[in-house]
Write a protein that binds this DNA or RNA. Sequence first.
DNA 1: TTCCGACAGTGGGGTCGCAAT
DNA 2: ATTGCGACCCCACTATCGGAA
Length: 507
Amino acid sequence: MLLIDVVRVSEAVTRTSARLGKISLLAELLGRVGPDEAETAISYLSGELPQRQVGVGWRTLEDLPQPKLAATATLTTVDELLSRIKAVSGQGSQAARKALVAELFAGLTSQEQQFMSRLLFGELRQGALDGVMIEAVAKASGAPSADVRRALTLRGWLPAVGAAALTGGVAALHAFRLEVGQAVSPMLAGSAPNVATALEKAGNPAALEWKLDGVRVQAHRSGGAVKVFTRTLDDITPQVPELVEAVLEMPSEDLVLDGEVLALRPDGRPHPFQVTASRVTSKTNVAQLRERTPLSVFFFDALRVDGADLLDLPYSQRQKALVRTVPQGLLTPRLITGDVAEAEKFFTDVVRAGHEGLVVKSLASPYAAGRRGAGWIKVKPRHTLDLVVLAAEWGHGRREGKLSNLHLGARDPEGGFVMLGKTFKGLTDELLAWQTERFLELAAGPTDSWTVTLRPELVVEIAFDGVQRSPRYPGGMALRFARVLRYRPDKRVEDADTVETVRSLML
DNA sequence: TTCCGACAGTGGGGTCGCAAT
DNA sequence: ATTGCGACCCCACTATCGGAA
């Protein structure tokens, strides 16, 4: 199949706003792709590369060769070239990589070049990713989408599942099983503003678990072999020896567990997330790092114990298996209750202990991977500050022509403002339109092509999860997960929060 | 030879609008 | 009304390459 066929469908999908329309277009193409190219086609049309990452980013794509006039590239040739690019990136020659990228793009028309650039950026923006592709695979193969979803949970990678469905139908989907050593898509949580709301959603009573601010891990054990995967199914086994040892000490030799690793201080309180993330992603000198910053692991779910698959069992039964296998000290603190007051006290406790909040879980829900909001709901405390808008950046995509990304500053009592970060979240279309107009009135000084500097006159109420140490911003602090709550035209800039207030939140 | 800047890719994430149910 | 999905972009960090010191 030619790449241009895929590009044309992608463009048609972009033009169609109806989800069912997108699904039909995608399914139609899947119906005519050959078995050898099915994985590649599914991969491209769900916005990812079969190679995952190939070491090519915006810099490499800055100057591309002249496009070809005739579209002759096939999926197979493009895929092979990308694999070579990845191989070269792995063994260290940027020049060789650049040459291969040039070779790839020289074989593409301008239409294809644009598609390939967006694909490499991970910004396809056709309004269809895995969620839509699952339905397209179902439609093209005649299999129920629940079966596709289930297979995806177990295999973790849609192109492989889709290709199997297209060639082998439902039977091929049913052949996917939980395999020790093969990462499973992790179950994700939705969120709620407070414990009471979360309890309502999860059912009553529900399980409340501490939400630890670390890195999600899935640990697999088969006999003496252990593998550890992240949320995106990357293998981090060499970076977390503590975890490997802990799993090897457990009584079951055939295990899949779900949990969180994080670095704790000697007093038992958690290090900032930055410390944990740094430890987990460091691949060199792990032995030394381990002495200085040991990792702790806390498990909260069991997908397989003693060779028995537990995915379809309700939470309460998976917990029984978990508790039977994992030593008490490695279990995530948990409370089962339907009492709102008791739940709120548990929430206060966990926050006081320095952790993120709670995950409220339905006792009945199976392990339904990949979808947020099903049976798990996270609750975190919310801080707010009144900050001053210092500048704004022009948006992209559906925010084209609108000033979107806000630069936020706290008041410096000495005079002036200290920037604490940016946010684009929490803005409705109406608010975007309003602020674009208002910001242009407040525009001050030179304005580059993407940023508009403002006179600092507008106060905005910002919600955020915490203050972290920042090497980037002048105050040495940045807000974590900042989002706009509302503008405060009633407040004067002199009433905005100060750097001192922010600093006190960092401790 | 060592240092350092730039780039790519990973970890963590919230809220909106739209389509479909 | 509610739900699922994709789009919108954030900050911190490590690994790596290649040129500067």
